[in-house]
Amino acid sequence: MTQALESHRARLAAGEIYNGLWMMSTSQELAKVGSAAGYDYVCLDMQHGFTRPTDVLRLTDAIRASGSALVTARVSANRFTEIGMLADAGVEAVIVPLVSNVAEAEAAVSALDYPSRGGDRSWGPTAELMHKAVQDTRDERPLLFVMIENKEGLANVEKICEVPGIDGVYVGPADLAFAVDALPGQPNDAHAEALVRIRTAADKAGIVPGIHCGDGTEAKVRKEQGFRFITSAGDIGAAGRAFREDLATARG
């Protein structure tokens, strides 16, 4: 895991654009297909998707089996035990939702860092016991993205981005729209200004600006706006679109 993670860390630090696949389902087959397709990361969604702790190891194995995608997961909430569980399972990047202030950002960092790095993480070599000999991993930790998606988080985004240990921010555009009294998917000046503010804060702090998108067309727009960690497809949505298009073609 270390070599792969350090490669991703170096690529992101160098400014590369990452396009990702979002996994709502627990399909090992789709996880393999997505990784094989060449996505830079594949994210398991434990907040709004169907992934549960018992699914994590088999899904991360599926992602690694067919490609070199950054193995990513979004926790359901900013909880110490859940964040640590994903790190123990060998997840390489963790996305934490609804981070509203510096204290919450620091709590997420502390959940990933061992005491040797100033954190509170408890050592549990789950993935190592499954795959290889146990080693000293005190200096290892996944990448950490915190989500900016509510009014308080937006108001504190500059301070959140400066918290040591935060590797990037990840925007939830729909919830951010609600935060600025807009409707998801509808053009809105306040929403556009909020996106610029978040991306600017990330750039200034030297961390990675990320955002959630529904398809490649939207992802291309966000790339042009300066975002670099961009979900450009979801497994269920992409499969549904492909099914409908293929059926329409078949029916002529």
Rank of each mutant, 00 (worst) to 15 (best):
V96F: 10
L21F: 04
A36D: 09
S122I: 05
V180R: 02
A182M: 07
V56D: 07
K220P: 00
T60P: 01
G153P: 03
M1K: 07
V169H: 01
A105M: 15
V102S: 11
I207M: 02
G20L: 07
A93Q: 06
T51A: 15
Y18V: 00
R141S: 12
K32G: 13
A103S: 11
V221R: 03
D40I: 01
D88L: 10
S232G: 12
Q47K: 08
N150T: 08
A69E: 15
M24I: 14
H191V: 11
A182P: 01
A31W: 09
S232W: 08
D181N: 13
K132A: 15
Q28N: 15
R199M: 06
E158F: 09
E162F: 06
G34A: 14
L195P: 00
R58A: 12
L143I: 02
V146I: 10
R228H: 07
Q47Y: 11
P164V: 01
G119N: 06
T26R: 12
T137A: 14
D203H: 03
T26P: 08
G84H: 02
A107I: 10
E162R: 04
I148C: 10
E149T: 03
G237L: 15
R64A: 15
D113I: 09
R241E: 14
E193P: 00
D40Q: 10
E140Q: 09
V171T: 01
P125E: 09
H8S: 11
L21G: 00
A87I: 04
I166D: 02
G206W: 02
L86K: 02
E218C: 03
V157G: 08
D175A: 06
D203N: 03
S27F: 14
I95E: 07
N150Y: 04
S7R: 11
A13P: 00
A238I: 15
T2Q: 11
D246L: 11
E149L: 07
Q225A: 09
G252V: 01
A4R: 08
T54I: 12
A250M: 08
L57T: 11
A65R: 07
F178I: 09
R121H: 03
T217H: 04
K151M: 12
I63G: 04
P173D: 06
F178V: 07
Y39R: 02
L70T: 06
D175T: 02
E92H: 04
L154G: 05
A155M: 14
G38P: 00
G206C: 08
G172W: 00
P53Y: 13
T54M: 15
L183Y: 05
D175P: 00
Q3M: 14
T60Y: 05
L129F: 08
A233K: 02
N156V: 10
C43F: 06
R64T: 10
K223E: 13
I63D: 07
E104F: 10
L183P: 00
E140P: 01
T54Q: 15
R52V: 10
G38L: 08
V171R: 00
G168T: 00
V146L: 11
K223M: 14
A105H: 05
F227V: 04
L144P: 00
D40N: 09
E140S: 12
E140H: 09
